[in-house]
Computed example of a mutant assay.
Amino acid sequence: MSDITWETPFCAEGSSCFRIGTDADGNAYIAVNGQEEHHLTDSREALRTLITDIKAGKADHLL
């Protein structure tokens, strides 16, 4: 597995903190801050779409 470069955690008020990471192979990762060893993996485009939909209010129930 490639090394994952994790970004600064995103923490919304009153909820868990999440981290997003990427690797040199074009994969994207998302994990609860402090639980990076238990991450989900997908393409960068899939992760970008998920975040865009959440910001647009289409998936706010997931947070």
Rank of each mutant, 00 (worst) to 15 (best):
L47K: 04
F18Q: 08
S43P: 11
C17R: 08
H38Y: 05
E36G: 07
D3E: 15
M1Q: 07
T8D: 13
N27M: 04
E7H: 11
E7V: 04
L47W: 07
A28N: 05
K58A: 14
A12V: 02
D42F: 10
N33D: 15
E36I: 00
I4R: 00
S16L: 11
C11M: 10
L40A: 08
F18A: 07
G57F: 02
I54S: 09
D53C: 10
G34V: 03
L40I: 12
K58I: 03
V32Q: 13
T49D: 05
T41V: 13
D23P: 11
S16T: 12
C11H: 15
I54V: 14
E36M: 00
A12H: 11
A28R: 04
F18G: 08
C17T: 12
T5M: 04
E37A: 09
L40M: 06
E13K: 11
T5N: 10
D60P: 02
A56K: 13
S2K: 11
S16N: 13
E7N: 12
H38F: 00
T8V: 14
G26K: 07
I20G: 00
A56E: 06
W6K: 04
A56Q: 10
I20N: 02
W6A: 07
E13S: 14
K58T: 07
I30K: 05
A24W: 03
S15Q: 08
T22N: 04
I54R: 09
K55D: 09
E36K: 08
T5W: 01
M1D: 06
S2V: 02
V32A: 08
S15D: 09
A12I: 02
G21V: 04
F10L: 12
S43I: 03
S16A: 14
K58D: 14
T52E: 14
T8I: 14
S2W: 01
H61I: 04
M1V: 10
L50K: 12
G26F: 02
D3A: 13
C11N: 15
F10H: 13
F18L: 13
M1R: 14
H39F: 00
I54E: 09
S2F: 00
C11F: 01
P9C: 10
C17Q: 11
V32D: 03
L63F: 12
V32E: 10
L47C: 12
L62E: 05
Y29Q: 00
A31R: 05
T5D: 04
P9I: 09
K58W: 03
R48V: 01
T41F: 01
E45H: 11
E37I: 08
G26I: 06
R44A: 12
E45F: 02
P9D: 07
D53E: 15
V32P: 02
A28F: 01
G57A: 00
L62I: 08
P9L: 06
A12P: 14
K58E: 15
R19F: 03
G21I: 05
C17P: 06
G26R: 06
R48M: 02
V32S: 07
P9W: 06
A31L: 01
L63E: 00
Q35T: 05
A28M: 07
K55S: 12
Y29R: 00
L47E: 01
T22S: 09
S2G: 03
F18W: 12
H38W: 04
P9R: 12
T52S: 15
I30E: 01
D23E: 03
T52G: 13
W6V: 05
Y29I: 08
T5A: 13
E36N: 13
S2N: 10
A12C: 10
D42H: 08
T49W: 02
G57Y: 01
S15L: 10
L50T: 15
